[in-house]
Nucleic acid binder design. Structure first.
Length: 886
RNA sequence: GCGAGAAUGGCGGAACUGGCAGACGCACCAGACUUAGGAUCUGGCGGGGCAACCUGUGGGGGUUCAAAUCCCCCUUCUCGCACCA
């Protein structure tokens, strides 16, 4: 069989063999086999410690970070995309001569581990570490250039010790405190949720309806940094605008006035907050939050109050209850009824509001429901007359205008009136100007096992006692059972609860709540900088960095490029900014902001299929547009984010097995720019694979071509026109790819540029030695530029070309502007803005000559023959537009 | 309602500060090679027209020699926030 003639040989002028048709037997060692190549180079990189990062002060540093994953069990396409983007950047920056830090770790505390424990009886730690091990293998299979020496897992005592240490620091600084409050409670997860974790009044994780529950909880005083977090937004120039907008929104600063409304018949007064002091003459009632300190004593109808309190936080229906008491408007002396209303929030402002139904839609509707008066105090500027009263109003007039019925302020425009009235109120001692923020303190207590134990001890005689630093970490106990029924398993651990008081030595008990896992991820980027080798060699050490400007953390921070999903636009990113400022104030680091540049990558989506009977279908369940189970006609669903429930997921492992990691990476980078959603296409993946095969064939067959001849001949003289063109194209491509990567990480167009170059190189047949060396340059440049995208194939080809050193130790190719310049350009000739001819002219032609050339063109002369030429516009090197009359 | 973004062939997407619309890829069509092709290669590919040419970037106006790009108005979609006083 082996002697069977199997290929057609075509001899080129240079006697290089080109295989037009080859059987499998003949090309076995020439064929691109990612399955062999990829593990080989992964092992090599690891042996060579190629990605280890040390603070090298002779080079510019670059900290490239992707959001670390929760070890759920398997990586998905979202991870693949995220890490592919990060890896290209890291590898590119290294080739560009930067000293790069590119770490990876595990956000490994959290609910799923505990749920697995309840369901399968496996300990959360065992479950988690098993997942980590598996996922780490998967990541290695992708050929990602991480410095695994700095790996962290937030569930390791080594890590959470510092969570606890930071907690103690916050406690010292008065930034951690305990209070009783209404909290968001997820009945299904049986735990408290932060405000940021409640989405549409549902749990962000399990989607169950969140209820309000009164509990004593630990809080972080993020509000103390509200102003700085807001101001800092302006320095986030490397962040997407919308993320910054979302952060600003969340912090929600508003300027207003707090005004005292005396309570009729008493010495007490009610303090309200308003941003519209200009409407204060229009107040016709005031509302208290159900939880307001005065509510209880003012309200006679206790049952009614209970009913209103029960509806607190339920925003669908606005309900109120008249307390039976009145307050006095301090500016008008008018008496206004006091209501308790379920929509007034205790947490915002003062928990009491003044209601101006004429100028606030919600107040307006409330007034209609409860038959309260409406008093107009602002009218549109043009109609400065007071229009007759409430009967005409069908809705509140919320815009700015001119004040009426407002005593000495009547006739003043509302913008101006705000300032005047606020000043008047302060002057008369009726209230004060204040700033309010929407953001509230961050509740971090969770009634869970698989999280960082909060390091405090409760003592009968000493009260709340922090665990001394020397006793850290407070380790999660092993003797726990996971019943899934009510409360934290830590409550059941006798060995954990009982402890002697560090202060008086008496019997005491430990805090059994653990920290929100968002605490873990709020400083992990700093942990990587301070991690030295594996555990045995010291691990993370924050202490050494306190007030130490030489600490490595100050070399690497801030993160130069952070990459992750948009879903963290508020939660994680805001907490991390907060922690960074706290760490700065502790003396741990010198930066104000953790992430200089942020790239929020789009989702990975795929088409879906839906059967009227069987709901979502896997693609293989669709046969000729019909459901394979019932034969019903299948509807093509929308392109949606990959999810198990929609049955449109692609498993990265199966892709790697079939096409290799290089193809998977390449496609995920080519199909769309990183910040946009990506539609996964099986055919598109094949296209990427085809391209790599093309590169392989081209580079492998020409692997022994040398570039030397070009060295003596720096310009293009002596080359055949085809070779000169290829050389030009090579330099143009280097320029294009570099600029695309540098500018916005637009890898899709960078890859397109490489494809063009490969196409052009493939169809090039060198006729001279010099031409051949141009081809070698083109190929080597291609391989070098492709390396960050598809690292294995390029490393293999690089070595096949006889290179001894890793391609990732090479410099990124540079272009020569002179060589990138076209000798001839195609000049577009328009007549009245319409394309009429294209002429080839030498580059750098003067405007006058371009004009002459355009007007001299046969076709143009024909068109313009009997017309009056009014004007000729010349865009140098590009276009001539001839404007003619009719 | 407020904020951010988007709309370009059959599809994903290109087009730098206004200057050839549709790069690159997918799909499709034709051809070559082949026992075969879901491999490879070559060519074609917005729409209309034999052609010259006309027309075309969600819709309508405008500015300009020239508009996907700038200005005004409108439509649709995506995302985030939303009784915050």
């Amino acid at each position: 069989n082996s002697t069977k003639p199997c290929c057609t040989l075509v001899h080129s002028p240079l006697n290089t063999i080109q295989y037009n048709y080859v059987t499998e037997a003949a090309i076995v060692d020439e064929r691109y086999t990612p399955q062999d190549i990829e593990p080989k180079w992964q092992a090599y990189w690891s042996e060579q410690c190629l990605h280890q990062s040390t603070a090298d002060h002779s080079k510019k540093k670059f900290y490239c970070l992707e959001m670390f994953p929760y070890p759920s069990g398997k990586i998905h396409m979202g991870h693949v995309r995220n890490y592919a983007i990060g890896d290209v950047i890291a590898r590119y920056k290294r080739m560009k001569g930067f000293s790069v830090l590119h770490p990876m770790g595990w956000d490994s505390f959290g609910l799923p581990a505990e749920n697995a424990a309840i369901k399968h009886g496996v300990h959360p730690a065992a479950w988690t570490y098993e997942n980590i091990e598996f996922m780490k293998k998967q990541l290695s299979g992708m050929g990602l250039s991480y410095d695994w020496d700095r790996e962290v897992a937030t569930c390791s005592p080594e890590y959470y010790k510092w969570n606890q240490w930071l907690f103690l620091k916050l406690l010292e600084m008065g930034l951690a405190y305990k209070k009783t409050s209404f909290v968001n409670w997820c009945p299904s997860c049986a735990t408290v949720l932060a405000n940021e974790q409640v989405i549409d009044e549902k749990c962000w994780r399990c989607d169950s309806s969140v209820v309000q529950k009164e509990l004593e909880q630990w809080f972080f005083r993020i509000t103390r940094y509200a102003e700085e977090l807001l101001q800092g937004c302006d320095s986030l120039t490397g962040w997407p605008e919308r993320v910054v907008a979302m952060q600003k929104n969340w912090i929600g600063r508003s300027e207003g006035v707090e005004v005292e409304f005396p309570l009729e018949g008493t010495e007490v007064s009610i303090r309200i907050y308003t941003t519209r002091p200009d409407t204060i003459f229009g107040v016709t009632f005031i509302c208290l939050a159900p939880g307001h300190p005065l509510t209880e004593s003012l309200t006679e109808d206790k049952k009614g109050l209970e009913a209103i309190t029960a509806k607190y936080g339920k925003m669908e229906e606005k309900e109120g209850l008249f307390t039976g008491r009145y307050a006095v408007n301090p500016l008008t002396g008018e008496r206004v009824p006091i209501y308790v209303a379920n929509f007034v929030l205790m947490e915002y402002g003062t928990g009491a509001i003044m209601s101006v139904p004429a100028h606030d839609q919600r107040d307006f509707e409330f007034a209609q429901n409860y038959g309260l008066p409406v008093k107009v105090v602002i009218v549109e500027e043009q109609k400065s007359e007071v229009r007759s009263q409430k009967s005409e109003l069908t809705e509140a007039f919320e815009d700015e205008g001119v004040l009426v019925n407002s005593e000495q302020f009547s006739g003043v425009r509302s913008g101006e009136a705000k300032a005047q009235i606020a000043a008047y109120i302060e002057e008369k001692g009726l209230g004060t100007r204040t700033v309010n923020y929407r953001i509230r303190d961050w509740g971090i207590s969770r009634q869970r096992y698989w999280g960082t134990p909060i390091p405090v001890i409760y003592c009968e005689s000493c009260g709340i006692v922090p665990v001394p630093e020397k006793d850290l970490p407070v380790i999660l106990p092993e003797d726990v059972t996971f019943s899934g029924k009510g409360g934290s398993p830590l409550k059941e651990s006798e060995s954990f609860i009982h402890v002697s008081c560090p202060s008086c030595g008496g019997a005491a008990r430990r805090e059994t709540d653990t920290m929100d896992t968002f605490v873990d991820s709020s400083w992990y980027f700093a942990a990587y900088c301070l991690k030295k080798g594996q555990k045995s060699e010291g691990g993370i050490d924050l202490l050494s960095a306190v007030n130490n400007p030489q600490a490595e953390i100050n070399h690497w921070m801030p993160v130069d490029q952070y990459i992750g999903g948009i879903e963290h636009a508020v939660l994680h990113l805001l907490y991390s900014r907060f922690f960074t400022k706290v760490m700065r104030d502790i003396g741990l680091l010198k930066t104000d902001e953790p992430f200089a540049n942020l790239l929020t990558q789009g989702m990975v989506c795929k088409e879906t299929w839906k059967c009227p009977e069987h709901d979502w279908l896997f693609p293989e369940e669709v046969e000729d547009g019909r459901c394979s189970k019932c034969g019903a006609e299948v509807v093509k669903g929308r392109v949606e984010k990959m999810s198990k429930s929609k049955k449109n997921v692609i498993d990265p492992d199966s892709l790697i097995r079939r096409y290799g990691a290089d193809t998977m990476r390449l496609f995920s980078l080519f199909a769309a720019p990183p910040e946009r959603d990506l539609e996964w296409s099986d055919k598109g993946v094949e296209g990427a694979f085809r391209f790599l095969n093309k590169v392989w064939t081209l580079a492998y067959r020409n692997r022994s071509r040398k570039t030397e001849d070009r060295a003596q001949n720096p310009d293009a003289s002596g080359l055949t026109p085809q070779a000169a063109q290829l050389l030009r194209k090579t330099h143009q491509t280097i320029r294009k790819v570099t600029e695309d990567v540098e500018k916005d990480y637009h890898f899709n167009t960078a890859i397109a540029g490489l494809m063009e170059l490969v196409n052009e190189t493939s169809s090039f047949n060198p006729e001279t030695e010099e031409d051949a060396s141009v081809m070698a340059i083109a190929i080597r440049s291609t391989i070098l530029m492709l390396a960050p995208f598809s690292p294995h194939i390029t490393e293999e080809l690089w070595s096949a070309m006889g290179e001894k050193e890793s391609i990732f130790r090479q410099s990124w190719p540079e272009w020569d502007e002179a060589l990138a310049k076209d000798e001839e350009v195609e000049l577009v000739v328009q007549v009245n803005g319409k394309l009429r001819a294209k002429i080839l002219v030498p580059a750098g032609l003067s405007e006058e000559d371009a004009k002459k050339a355009a007007l001299g063109d046969e076709r143009i002369r024909e068109i313009t023959a009997d017309k009056e030429i009014k004007k000729v516009v010349v865009v140098k090197g590009k276009l001539v537009n001839i404007v003619v009359g009719a």
